[in-house]
């Protein structure tokens, strides 16, 4: 690899992981805001999300510069494509974290967590998926990334179960519809975050192995 390109990649990686650190932090805080009912966190999360948005734009411009200047090929091009997509996914996760946090004030004091018993576990899984997929990029570890793909199915199942429970509760007692709906949305966001973490893991596999595992090709290849 050309030394200039190498240097540029190092810088890109640094920026990407600075962005990911902010996103991870925001996700943690958002989950905390909902589960522990700390209303003061929302403003903090919003402020950091602004930084995240700026970082995302900067990163994309940086990527375009590198593409135009060095015109990378083969594995380098793969890297560029992957980080561009990861950048996007991270920004989306950041937005979802804000959405989760914004529901927090309406849920506190009403024991909402009890109504969605699986939420803490789902949130924890989603966070660990995000962490693992980022770890997979750091270590270029396709096996770790595949673990993430497996976990996504669990989160989907949890979400389905929780949504069924919440629907049942809504039918039974319409006075709590607002809170229950909020809860439902929070669960949906967490499930979305898990999906995006899965995307990142797929990009990590693509980066490490050059294999595209999206759209169930992973399942079809029978590697599980």
């Amino acid at each position: 690899m050309h030394p200039h390109l190498n240097h540029a990649f190092k810088r890109l990686k640094k920026s990407l992981f600075t962005l990911s650190a902010a996103v991870e932090e925001n996700l943690h805080l958002a989950v905390k805001a909902v589960l522990e009912g700390e209303p003061g966190l929302v403003d903090q999360i919003r402020a950091r999300d602004l930084e995240i948005d700026l970082m995302e734009v900067d990163f994309e411009e940086e990527c375009l510069k590198v593409l135009a200047l060095h015109q990378p090929v083969a594995i380098d091009l793969r890297f560029m494509v992957a980080v561009l997509k990861i950048n996007n996914d991270l920004e989306r996760i950041g937005d979802l974290a804000v959405s989760i946090a914004e529901h927090a004030p309406h849920l506190t004091g009403k024991d909402p967590v009890d109504t969605a018993r699986k939420l803490p576990r789902m949130a924890e899984k989603a966070q660990s998926m995000l962490r693992k997929s980022l770890d997979a990029i750091v270590g270029m570890d396709a096996d770790l990334a595949r673990e993430v793909l497996a976990t996504d199915d669990e989160v989907d199942a949890d979400y389905y179960e929780t949504s069924q429970e919440l629907k049942a509760l809504m039918r039974k007692d319409s006075s709590q519809v607002d809170e229950l709906l909020g809860m439902m949305l929070v669960c949906k966001h967490v499930e979305r975050i898990a999906d995006l973490a899965t995307n990142i893991a797929e990009d990590a596999i693509y980066m490490a192995d050059g294999e595209i595992v999206r759209h169930g090709r992973y399942h079809a290849s029978g590697e599980r």
């Binding site: 190092k10 992981f17 600075t18 650190a21 932090e25 750091v138």
Partner: peptide, 18 residues
């Protein structure tokens, strides 16, 4: 073994520490 030779961003991934 993972840590040395990698950047702080990769290893720690905490915005405040970075």
């Amino acid at each position: 073994a993972m840590a040395e030779g990698r950047t702080l961003q990769e290893v720690v991934r905490n915005p405040d520490l970075i």
